[in-house]
Measured scan of single mutants.
Amino acid sequence: ENVVSAPMPGKVLRVLVRVGDRVRVGQGLLVLEAMKMENEIPSPRDGVVKRILVKEGEIDDTGQPLIELG
């Protein structure tokens, strides 16, 4: 899985990584606010952040691509 998608609709509060960062499975990639709760979205695998497809403050839909890993 190279693309991390939104598991729920919500607002992107914080992006915790930058392009080029090495990430490990379970590491937080970004924080979504949904139903007044903050949810940290973890990396599904080890890899390198290739692209960040959303910006802080954006509203996303379920299934929307958020981050691409390489």
Rank of each mutant, 00 (worst) to 15 (best):
I41V: 10
K50W: 11
K11V: 10
E38K: 09
A6K: 03
T62L: 13
V48K: 05
E68P: 03
R18I: 08
L53S: 03
V3C: 13
G63T: 08
V54S: 05
E58C: 10
L32N: 00
V23N: 00
G70D: 14
E1R: 12
V49E: 02
G28Y: 09
L53V: 05
Q64A: 13
L16W: 00
R24A: 10
S5M: 13
A6P: 03
E56V: 14
K11P: 00
V12C: 07
Q64R: 11
I52G: 01
V19A: 07
D60A: 15
G26Q: 03
L13I: 12
P42M: 11
D46V: 06
R14T: 05
N39F: 15
L30K: 00
V54F: 08
G20M: 06
E40Y: 12
R51T: 09
I41W: 03
L29G: 00
P42I: 13
P9K: 13
L16M: 09
P7N: 08
L29R: 00
V17P: 00
I52A: 01
G20F: 05
V25G: 07
K11W: 07
G28R: 08
Q64N: 08
E1V: 14
D21M: 10
M8E: 05
L69C: 04
L13G: 00
D60T: 15
E56R: 09
V23M: 02
E38I: 12
M8N: 07
D46I: 06
L69V: 08
M35N: 15
K55E: 12
G63S: 08
E33Y: 15
K50P: 01
R18F: 07
V15G: 00
M35D: 14
R22S: 11
P44T: 07
V48G: 02
G63M: 08
G28V: 15
E68L: 14
I41A: 01
G63K: 07
V15S: 00
T62G: 09
G28W: 09
K55A: 12
E40L: 15
I67A: 03
R24E: 09
R22Y: 14
V3H: 08
L69D: 01
R18T: 09
M8A: 09
K36G: 15
V48R: 07
I41N: 03
V19Q: 07
L16P: 00
P7R: 07
I52P: 01
D61W: 14
Q27K: 04
E56Q: 10
T62W: 11
G10Q: 03
R45T: 10
E56A: 11
V3L: 12
G70P: 02
G28K: 10
D61E: 14
S5I: 14
A34N: 13
L16F: 05
Q27Y: 04
M37H: 10
R45H: 09
P44V: 04
D21I: 09
D46P: 07
P44A: 04
M8G: 09
L16C: 11
D60L: 15
V19L: 07
P9F: 09
G26C: 08
E68R: 06
R18W: 05
V19Y: 03
V25T: 12
V3Q: 07
G26T: 03
N2Q: 10
E38V: 11
K36R: 12
V19R: 06
Q64P: 03
E33D: 06
I67E: 01
V12G: 00
L30Q: 00
V48E: 06
V19P: 08
V31Y: 03
Q27D: 09
P7I: 07
E40I: 15
P42T: 14
N2C: 15
V48N: 04
V48H: 08
L16K: 04
L32H: 05
M37W: 07
G57H: 05
L29D: 00
S43L: 03
K11A: 04
L30A: 04
L69A: 01
I59M: 12
I41Q: 01
E33T: 07
R22M: 12
L69K: 01
D60W: 15
Q64S: 11
S5N: 11
E1F: 13
G10D: 00
T62K: 13
D61H: 14
M35R: 10
M35Q: 12
I59Q: 10
M8S: 10
R14S: 04
M37R: 12
E58T: 10
I59V: 12
V15K: 00
A34L: 11
A6Y: 07
T62N: 07
M37V: 13
R45L: 12
G28A: 14
L66Q: 03
G10C: 11
R14Q: 05
N39K: 13
R24C: 12
L29M: 06
R22Q: 11
P7H: 08
V4G: 02
E58S: 10
V25N: 07
V23P: 00
M37C: 11
D61L: 13
L30W: 03
P9C: 11
E38M: 10
G57L: 06
P9M: 11
D60Q: 15
V17E: 00
I67G: 01
V15F: 11
V17G: 00
E1I: 14
E40W: 12
K50A: 10
P42W: 08
V15T: 03
L13A: 05
D21R: 03
Q27G: 03
P44D: 05
P44G: 04
E58N: 10
I52V: 10
E33Q: 11
G10S: 06
V54H: 04
P65L: 07
V31Q: 01
P9E: 06
E33N: 04
I52M: 03
V48S: 04
D46S: 10
D46F: 08
G20C: 12
L32I: 14
E38C: 11
V4H: 02
E56S: 09
P9V: 09
P65I: 11
R24Y: 13
I41G: 02
R45D: 04
E38S: 09
V23L: 03
K55Q: 12
L32D: 00
R51Y: 08
D60I: 15
D60F: 15
E1M: 13
R14L: 06
L66S: 03
I59Y: 14
V4L: 06
R24M: 10
G70W: 15
R18E: 10
